[in-house]
Nucleic acid binder design. Sequence first.
RNA 1: GGAGGGGUGGCAGAGUGGUUGAAUGCACUGGUCUUGAAAACCAGCGUGCCGCAAGGUACCGGGGGUUCGAAUCCCUCCCCCUCCGCCA
Length: 429
Amino acid sequence: MLGVEFIRSHPDKVRQGLAARGASGNIQLVDEVIEHDRRLRQALTLQQSKQQEINATSRTIGTLMREGNQDAAGELIQKQKNLKSEIKELGRTVTDTERQLSRLLLAIPNLPHESVPEGLSEADNVAVHQHGELPSFDFEPLPHWEIARRHGLIEFERGAKVAGAGFPFYMDAGAKLHRALINFFLNAAALQYTEVRPPLFVNAESAQGTGQLPDKDGQMYFVEEDGFYPVPTAEVPLTNYFRNEILSESDLPVRFCAHTPCWRREAGSYGAHVRGLNRLHQFDKVEIVQFTHPRNSYDTLEIMRRHAEALLQALELPYRCLLMCAGELGFNQTKQYDLEVWSAGQQRWLEVSSVSNFTDYQARRMNIRFRPESGGKPRLVHTLNGSALALPRVVAALLEYNQNRNGSYDLPEVLIPYLTEPELNVPSP
RNA sequence: GGAGGGGUGGCAGAGUGGUUGAAUGCACUGGUCUUGAAAACCAGCGUGCCGCAAGGUACCGGGGGUUCGAAUCCCUCCCCCUCCGCCA
């Protein structure tokens, strides 16, 4: 969330940010925050001054009691009763106002960075660059689900029987290709990031910390009996790792990477765009996360973007890099790149990575700070994350891009160390 | 799941109703001393909120209660440890 002091002192900047995101209906939130903040501080000041009076009187009572002056003490005790009920009343106002203020603050998204292009729709995203040539075939290229079916790589129907739509079985060479990609991605990330095996379920505090709650509530699965959320992305456990902690400045930057399954409800999705591996309820992903000094976060964003791009380059897949416009930006982000790989069988781009800077927005929610070496108060860190990469669509793109006329397919050289002969010599079906 | 024991500052560890935000030790920072270092000695050393400031206020796992007054008493939840049960 944004800092209430910032909203108080720069209301116009916040209104502009909301407008740029197309959240014009929410612009009145700014005034509501300012009003609730004013009410809160007023009540707080009053409550504190009354508390001060009570504390002082209590001390006097203690002294009088010790001196055996019961009468004088009794008189003061009577006086305390009124003050106490006043404080109780003020306390209710304080909690109530705090609750409302916090609800308002959670509803205000992060502000777009100045380098983020204007615009509200997908069409306004800026293609920063494209890498690799789009392939042309002298035959009709198949979509990945057809290739996967012919080679027995993935079973969607049995997955639907056993779990439901969007929970496929990867079989044999399909499972091994999947595992090879995980290892390749994780090994690449682990050169610079500490490899982590995080919890796959998180609690509500963590889900709120990274911003999945309240604004993406319906997107996560929920285990009601235990209050657990199966992770929709490793971002949640990784970023919450330092929740409510103060780091040393010399600890920064902290870099984590992790491979996890991700579970997403994807309610309301249907049709051709969710066919095959395009959109699943369970998929695997390697995620990279950084906690940085505020002055470094935008440079770090570029480094993380290049890391994800290097993976696609190593896989020899054509892709493009999009800079998301203000309206398409995630709720918590100030700046976000999406990497889209070319799906040769579907003739469209598929998102396989999203790399984002959250500046101090998540850190404020999670209360993650560092102690400046020069002294002074602890400051909020900046958090970033990126997919490096999401698996299923990479599998789809690999199969489609490398398919041959005779129905066989090739795999890029970079995966050779991760595979064995049977997966490398794919016969025509 | 059952029984019992615990959760105090970066760490260790006192404190069972009244100037206790909290003794003491360690760690850390500054200073004195020293050619330098160590040792010794002195001082400082949590976080949030309100306030221009002085200062005030809150926090001893979380929440609630009793009391004029709670780290200390009561209720409840969470977490950790030990034993039993169950299990990969």
